[in-house]
């Protein structure tokens, strides 16, 4: 199971970074969203894998690590806020600059 999780996170990271290296804003935002999934998962599994026992006192004998969970919960919400912000930024850039290249330049520089 650990290998599966590791590979899944790795593939998500790869795809996210590839998208982030694209020249248009929308794929870059898709990449950022994907990367935030990957990173959230990564931080979450830093508490190691455990099944069938939520971090609710009295629900079982052992509990998973609640600290990464709490961190990731807020990270998901903040990640949403940042995605929304950057989306609107991209929108604004598109209107102001007349194109959606990440450098604000239709041809790109390189």
């Amino acid at each position: 199971m650990e290998a599966l999780v590791a590979i899944a996170i790795g593939v998500m990271t790869s795809c996210a970074i590839y998208l982030m290296l694209r020249a248009r804003t929308f794929p870059v935002i898709l990449g950022l969203t994907l990367l935030s999934y990957a990173v959230n998962l990564f931080i979450f599994v830093m508490g190691r894998l455990s099944t069938g026992n939520p971090a609710v006192i009295g629900s079982g004998e052992t509990y998973p690590d609640p600290v990464p969970q709490a961190l990731v919960l807020t990270a998901i919400v903040i990640g949403f806020a940042m995605t929304a912000f950057i989306l609107v930024l991209a929108l604004r850039a598109r209107v102001e600059l007349g194109n959606d290249h990440v450098d604000g330049n239709q041809e790109g520089r390189t």
Binding site: G10, L21, L49, V67
Partner: peptide, 25 residues
Amino acid sequence: LSGAAGIGVTVLTWAVLTRPYETIA
């Protein structure tokens, strides 16, 4: 670049997940 990053993250995750750890939980 992205392939290397993915492999790096996979290796790192694997290395961490297979190791015991101490927690403040």
